[in-house]
């Protein structure tokens, strides 16, 4: 289960979002030395606004394992506005409401064993694609370290470079990428990474489930493991208001 955290349900995830911002501060401000805004012990930038959607992977105590930010590129994005030289041609063509940027992918650990980590890593990709298909997102874009191109291409199947890599001032290099979203991509991800069931879970503030602790949802989700040991999400992300029994 991957939690989809929007402006509407952020209030239910305050501890996890705080943990994510603290982790980002350690990695990007302390670790990489980037000049970014620091607030309340966490790292923030202009994309952390009402339009941002966070995907969170939590453990059974509802503690953060992994976080990712998605946001439309139409007004501003890291790739098109801060790093346009990583895009071949005019980066402005990627500024569209149906093109979303994936940024600030941070993880404190994906799994206790290699098989679990592989499965959970794939869950993030599947959840992103489920969300994209529900919300009419046609393409994900972003930037990453050049050395990650091969593994990222393997994980995303249809990822393509958006331009040629360029060196960072601090050493190493980065490049932009695009991932066209389609039903075919979701099918391929489900097949290649043995992820057959819906993964994304968006807590509806009007649902009776919203009165339950997040940790309880995680535990119930795990209790409903399928015969193959795979933990299905409580409900498909596209179900606007799922039944309470979905958690039972």
């Amino acid at each position: 289960m991957i939690h989809v955290v929007t402006a509407a349900n952020r209030g239910f995830y305050e501890p996890q979002l705080e943990a994510m911002h603290r982790l980002r501060r350690e990695l990007f401000i302390v670790g990489r030395g980037w000049d970014l805004e620091e607030r309340d012990g966490g790292e923030y930038d202009r994309s952390d606004d009402e339009r941002a959607i966070y995907l969170l992977m939590l453990d059974q105590d509802a503690r953060l394992l992994c976080g990712m930010r998605l946001r439309p590129t139409d007004d501003w994005s890291v790739l098109t506005d801060a790093l346009p030289h990583l895009v071949m041609g005019d980066a402005a063509r990627l500024k569209r409401p149906d093109i979303w940027e994936m940024t600030r992918h941070v993880s404190i650990g994906l799994g206790a064993t290699a098989p679990e980590a592989r499965r959970r890593s794939a869950e993030i990709r599947v959840a992103m694609t489920e969300l994209a298909l529900r919300d009419g997102i046609s393409q994900f874009v972003g930037a990453m370290d050049t050395g990650l191109l091969g593994p990222a291409t393997q994980g995303w199947i249809r990822l393509k470079a958006a331009g040629l890599p360029q060196p960072y001032p601090e050493g190493g290099s980065g490049l932009g990428f695009t991932i066209p979203v389609s039903e075919g991509l979701l099918a391929d991800l489900r097949r290649d990474f043995a992820c057959p069931v819906p993964i994304a879970f968006e807590l509806d503030a009007r649902s009776p489930l919203s009165a339950r602790p997040i940790a309880e949802l995680e535990i119930r989700s795990r209790a409903r493991q399928g015969a193959d040991g795979y933990p299905p999400s409580l409900a498909p992300v596209w179900a606007p208001c799922f039944a309470v029994e979905g958690a039972a």
């Binding site: 600030r104 650990g109 994906l110 206790a112 890593s121 972003g142 990453m144 990650l148």
Partner: peptide, 10 residues
């Protein structure tokens, strides 16, 4: 190498 942890991305 086992994939238990992963590098951060922008």
């Amino acid at each position: 190498a086992l994939g238990l942890i992963a590098p951060a991305m922008f």
